[in-house]
Nucleic acid binder design. Structure first.
Length: 816
RNA sequence: GCGGGCGUAGCCGAACUGGUAUAGGCGCCAGACUUAGGAUCUGGUCGGCGCAAGCCGGUGGGGGUUCGAGUCCCUCCGCCCGCACCA
C-alpha cells in the first residue's frame, strides 16, 4: 500500500481541531512557552515563502510541548496597508473586501499545513476591536508628551499630488511606485512618536538574546554620537547666531568656513542680495534632486556662498557661510563648522572652492607641510592659541569646558535615529484620534468615543488622495470640548503601529477593557521565542521594543523587552535562485505541492533544504527525495517485515540497534533545540536506513524493534505531524495523540557506541584504522597504534618523539 | 567608503570545544524486479596514477601557528546583505 498523504492529513487535522488539541490554556500548571512567528501580510500573492517561516516554528512548538511546556503558538494577520488600497484604486474592490478575501484564502491554506496554531486567539489588525487600542495607546502617549505634531519633510509625488509612504518610493532612482515620477521632499505637519526619548535604552541589549546582526543594525540605526553643540555668531549682526554640532571640538581653530543645510531657516535672512539668485537656484536644485543625486557615489560636493560671514567664537576669525546639500537639515543642528584639514568632506569642499586648509591637529611626525588628505586621527594641537601643545584628546575636553564656561555651548549626544513619523495620508489604516477645533486647537478624541471608525462608504480616487479628506461624514465633527463644528484628523497611522504590540493582543484577543487582560498577560508575557525575517531589524523590531518600554513606563507590563530570544530565518528563493515573484514566474504555490505530495512532505522539504537561517532556492528534484523518504517510512512502519528481504545482510545487532535508538534521540533533540532542522532530518534518515536493514534481520518484530519504531515515529512527529500520528495510532497502536506524549529521553550510556574506529596517524597523516572497544585506555590505544603493521611501516627505524592519544578518536605517532 | 556575513563534491549541504573532510539528500553510473518505467529496491559515486593493495593531491589563492587546520592568525581574491555625505 502506498502512503496516501491527502486523506491522512485531512483526517487528523479535523480531529485535532475537534478535540481542541491546539488551544493554549491560560491556567495550567506547566511552565509556559510563548512562541511567536511574525504574522503574515495577507497579500493576494500566496506562495511557498509563507510556509518557510511557519513550518519550522510549528515544529519547535510541537517539540516544546512534548518537553512539558504549555505552549502558545498564535496566528493573525497584518491587515492594514497600501496594497489593499491600491487594489481599491485600480480594481474598484473595497480594501476591506480585498483584505478579508485574502485572509480567508490564507486561513484555508495555512490550515492545510497542520500547524498547532491556536486559531481561537486569531488577531486581525483591521478589526475595530483591534485598532481601537492603537488609538488608545496613541492618546496615552499624547498625554505623556510622547506623541506630538510637527513640521517634517516627507516624500512627495508631484504628479499624483500626494505624499508617499516609505514603501511607495521604489528603486534606486527613488520614484513613485504608481507613476514612476521621482519623489521630492516636502514639509508637512505630521504626527510623531518620541522614540528618541528611549534611544539610549534601546542601545542596551543586555536583557535579550538576539542575533549579533540585528543588534548591530539597531545600534547603527540609532547612531549615537557624542560631541559639543555651540553657537557661531554671524558677522555684523550682534543678535544673530546659529548652532553647530561637532564631535571634534578640538579642531575648532581649523574652521575656515561654515555650511548651512539648504533648508536651514536662517538662509533667507542671511543671504545678501547679490547672491540671492544663486542661492535660490541651489535650494531649488537641492529640493528636487537631493535624494536622487545622493545615490551616485561619486557625486561631487558642491555648494553656494551666501554672502554672509560667521565668526569663529574661539579666535574671532571671520569665515564665509555656504549652503551645501552635504549638510542635512535632519541631523544635528542642520549646520556645521567647516574644518577641512580634519574632515574628509570639508577637505573636498575647501579644495573645490579654494578655501584655506590649516592644520590644527599635528599628526605624529608631521613635517609642517600641507596635507594631501584630511587627517582624522589623534595628534598634537597646533595653531590653536592657548591650547597648542596639548594632545587632541585633552584639547577636546578643554575646549568643550571653555565653551561651557563662556556659555556658548554644551556637551551633547546626538542620534541618527529620528522620532517615528506615523502619519500616513492613506485610508486603509488606523485613524489618528485627534480633532482640530478653531477655538480649542488640537483636541484628543475622548476615550469613550473610541474607536474612531473608518467610514465604509469611501470613494477611492485615481489621484491617490486619501478618501478621508473628502468624506464629509468623517471629516466634520463637533469639538468634544466646546461643541462647535470641528474637523477630524484625516491621516491614519503607520501600520508598524499595529505590529508593535500585536503579541500582547494574542493573550486575550477579545478583551474589551484594555489592550490585554492583565492577569493573563502576567502568565504569558513576554514572548519567549520570536522568529521572523531580518528585514524588520530596524523597523518593526525596534518599534516593538520602544512600545514595550512605553508600556512599562505606563505601568502596563513589568518587563523591559518584548521578546527574549529572536531567530531570523532566511528566505526561500525560486527555482532560478531569485526571489520568488509573480513577474518572474518562479513562484511555487504551496497548494499545488500539498496536492501532489502532502503537507508533511512540504514541511520536511522546507526544513531539509539547508540551515533555517540561510534559506535557499527551491529544488523541484529535492522534494522528490523527501517524498521517497516518507514513503519508505510508511513502508517501514506500516508494512510487516518480509523475512526474505536483505538476505545477505544480518542487520544491526541488538546492542547496535539500541545504540541507534538512543543516539538518534540525542541528535534530534540537540538539533531541534538549536533549530537545526536539516540535520535532524538527516539523523532520522540515517536511523531509517538502519531500521531498513534491521527489518530484514532476526530482530524484526521483537520488543526492541517495536521500541525502535515507536522512537522513530515519536521523533518524526514535530516535523511531520500527520504521518506520525497515523503511524502512531493506527499502526503502532499507541495512545492518541503522539503530539501530547512526553519527548523521548536517551540513555547516555546506550547512546555511546560499543566499538569505535580508532584512527592511527603518523605525523598527522592517517595510516591505519582499527576497530576497538569504546572504553579503551590511552595506554592500550598507544600500544595498539605502535603495534600496527602499517604504522610500523612508516616508523621505519625513525625515533618516536611523541605519541598523542585523543580518547575515542585517534592516536598520532610523532616521529622525527 | 563603513558595518555584518559567506566561500567544502556536478548541485543543496554535514563536520561538537582544532582530531577519520565530504554525513544526509539530489543528480549520475551499474545491477535487480519488470512488457515497460521518469515506479521501487540494492550497490557505487572528490580528483590523479594503478589490475589491485595502495600512493599522492584536495575545503577560493598564498603564508603562518600546531603533533594535527575546513575550523585559529595574517594576507589577497570572489560573492551576498545592510547603512550610505550623520558633522
Amino acid at each position: 500500500m502506498r502512503y496516501e498523504a491527502g486523506s491522512i492529513e485531512t483526517k487528523w487535522q479535523a480531529k485535532w481541531e475537534a478535540d481542541g488539541l491546539h488551544h493554549a490554556r491560560d491556567h495550567d500548571p506547566r511552565p509556559k512557552f510563548y512562541l511567536l512567528t511574525m504574522y503574515p501580510y495577507p497579500s493576494g500573492d500566496l506562495h511557498v515563502g509563507h510556509w518557510y517561516p511557519m513550518a519550522p516554528s510549528d515544529a519547535i512548538a510541537r517539540y516544546k510541548r512534548r518537553q512539558g511546556f504549555n505552549v502558545m503558538l498564535p496566528i493573525g494577520f497584518d491587515a492594514f496597508g497600501l496594497p489593499a488600497e491600491n487594489a481599491a484604486i485600480e480594481r474598484g474592490i473595497h480594501p476591506y473586501t480585498w483584505t478579508m478575501d485574502n485572509i480567508a484564502r490564507m486561513r484555508r491554506q495555512l490550515r492545510s499545513m497542520g500547524a498547532m496554531w491556536d486559531w481561537a486567539r486569531e488577531v486581525v489588525t483591521c478589526d475595530p476591536g483591534y485598532y481601537k487600542w492603537n488609538q488608545w495607546f496613541f492618546l496615552k502617549m499624547y498625554e505623556k508628551g510622547l506623541a506630538y505634531r510637527a513640521l517634517a519633510p516627507v516624500d512627495w509625488c508631484p504628479k499624483d499630488n500626494t505624499t508617499l509612504a516609505r514603501e511607495q518610493v521604489v528603486g534606486d532612482e527613488r520614484v513613485c511606485e504608481r507613476c514612476g515620477t521621482p519623489v521630492v521632499k516636502k514639509n508637512l505637519e505630521q504626527w510623531f512618536l518620541k522614540i528618541t526619548a528611549y534611544a539610549d535604552e534601546l542601545l542596551d541589549f543586555s536583557k535579550i538574546e538576539w542575533p549579533e546582526r540585528v543588534r548591530v543594525l539597531q545600534t547603527n540605526w540609532i547612531g549615537r554620537s557624542q560631541g559639543v553643540e555651540f553657537a557661531i555668531p554671524v558677522a555684523g549682526r550682534p543678535h544673530t547666531s546659529f548652532r553647530v554640532f561637532t564631535t571634534r571640538p578640538d579642531t575648532v581653530f581649523g574652521m575656515t568656513f561654515c555650511v548651512l543645510a539648504p533648508e536651514h531657516p536662517l538662509v533667507d535672512e542671511l543671504t545678501t542680495p547679490e547672491h540671492r539668485r544663486a542661492v535660490e537656484a541651489y535650494k531649488f536644485k537641492a529640493a528636487r534632486e537631493s535624494d536622487i543625486e545622493r545615490l551616485s557615489t561619486e557625486k561631487e560636493r558642491d555648494g553656494v556662498f551666501i554672502g554672509a560671514y560667521a565668526v569663529n567664537p574661539m579666535n574671532q576669525a571671520p569665515v564665509p557661510i555656504y549652503i551645501a546639500d552635504y549638510v542635512l537639515v535632519t541631523y544635528g543642528t542642520g549646520a556645521i563648522m567647516g574644518v577641512p584639514a580634519h574632515d574628509v568632506r570639508d577637505f573636498d569642499f575647501a579644495r573645490k572652492y579654494g578655501l584655506p586648509i590649516p592644520v590644527v591637529i599635528a599628526p605624529p611626525g608631521w613635517d609642517g607641510q600641507s596635507l594631501r588628505e584630511a587627517y582624522l586621527g589623534e595628534g598634537t594641537m597646533v595653531n590653536s592659541g592657548p591650547f597648542d601643545g596639548l594632545s587632541s584628546q585633552e584639547g577636546w575636553q578643554r575646549i568643550a569646558d571653555e565653551m561651557v564656561r563662556r556659555g556658548i555651548g554644551e556637551r551633547r549626544v546626538n542620534y541618527r535615529l529620528h522620532d517615528w513619523l506615523i502619519s500616513r495620508q492613506r485610508y486603509w489604516g488606523t485613524p489618528i484620534p485627534i480633532i482640530y477645533c478653531d477655538r480649542c486647537g488640537v483636541v484628543p478624541v475622548p476615550y469613550d468615543d473610541l474607536p474612531v471608525r473608518l467610514p465604509e462608504d469611501a470613494e477611492f480616487r485615481p489621484t491617490g488622495e486619501s478618501p478621508l479628506r473628502y468624506h464629509e461624514g468623517f471629516l466634520n465633527v463637533r469639538c468634544p470640548r466646546c461643541g462647535e463644528p470641528a474637523r477630524r484628523e484625516t491621516d491614519t497611522m503607520d501600520t508598524f503601529i499595529d505590529s508593535s504590540w500585536y503579541q500582547y493582543r494574542y493573550v486575550s484577543p477579545h478583551y474589551d477593557a484594555g489592550p490585554f487582560e492583565p492577569e493573563k498577560a502576567r502568565y504569558w508575557l513576554p514572548v519567549d521565542q520570536y522568529t521572523g525575517g531580518v528585514e524588520h531589524a530596524v523597523m518593526h523590531l525596534l518599534y516593538t521594543r520602544f512600545w514595550t518600554k512605553v508600556m512599562r513606563d505606563m505601568g502596563l507590563v513589568a518587563f523591559d523587552e518584548p521578546m527574549i530570544r529572536l531567530f531570523n530565518q532566511g528566505t526561500i528563493l525560486g527555482t532560478d535562485g531569485n526571489k520568488m515573484s509573480k513577474s518572474k514566474g518562479n513562484v511555487v504555490n504551496p497548494d499545488d505541492v500539498v496536492q501532489k505530495y502532502g503537507a508533511d512532505t512540504l514541511r520536511a522539504y522546507l526544513m531539509f533544504i539547508g540551515p533555517w537561517d540561510e534559506g535557499g532556492p527551491w529544488n523541484t528534484r529535492g522534494i522528490d527525495g523527501i517524498a521517497r523518504f516518507l514513503n519508505r517510512v510508511w513502508t517501514l512502519v506500516a508494512e510487516p517485515p518480509k523475512p526474505a528481504a536483505g538476505a545477505g545482510d544480518a542487520g544491526p545487532s541488538e546492542r547496535e540497534l539500541d545504540y541507534w535508538i538512543h543516539h538518534t534521540i540525542r541528535r534530534v533533540t540537540d538539533d531541534l533545540e538549536a533549530f537545526r532542522f536539516n540535520t535532524a532530518i538527516a539523523a532520522l534518515m540515517e536511523f531509517s536506513n538502519v531500521l531498513q536493514r534491521a527489518k530484514g534481520g532476526p530482530l524484526a518484530d521483537g520488543p526492541l524493534w517495536q521500541e525502535a519504531l515507536r522512537t522513530f515515529v515519536s521523533l518524526l512527529a514535530p516535523l511531520c505531524p500527520h504521518i506520525a500520528e497515523e503511524l502512531w495510532v493506527e499502526h503502532l497502536k499507541q495512545p492518541y495523540s503522539v503530539h501530547t506524549q512526553p519527548w523521548p529521553a536517551y540513555d547516555p550510556q546506550k547512546a555511546t557506541a560499543e566499538r569505535i574506529t580508532l584512527v592511527l596517524q603518523v605525523n598527522g597523516r592517517v595510516r591505519d584504522r582499527i576497530e576497538v572497544a569504546a572504553g579503551i585506555s590511552d595506554a592500550e590505544a598507544r600500544e595498539l597504534a605502535l603495534g600496527s603493521a602499517k604504522v610500523q611501516q612508516y616508523l621505519n627505524g625513525k625515533s618516536v618523539a611523541d605519541v598523542i592519544v585523543v580518547p575515542g578518536r585517534l592516536v598520532n605517532v610523532v616521529v622525527t
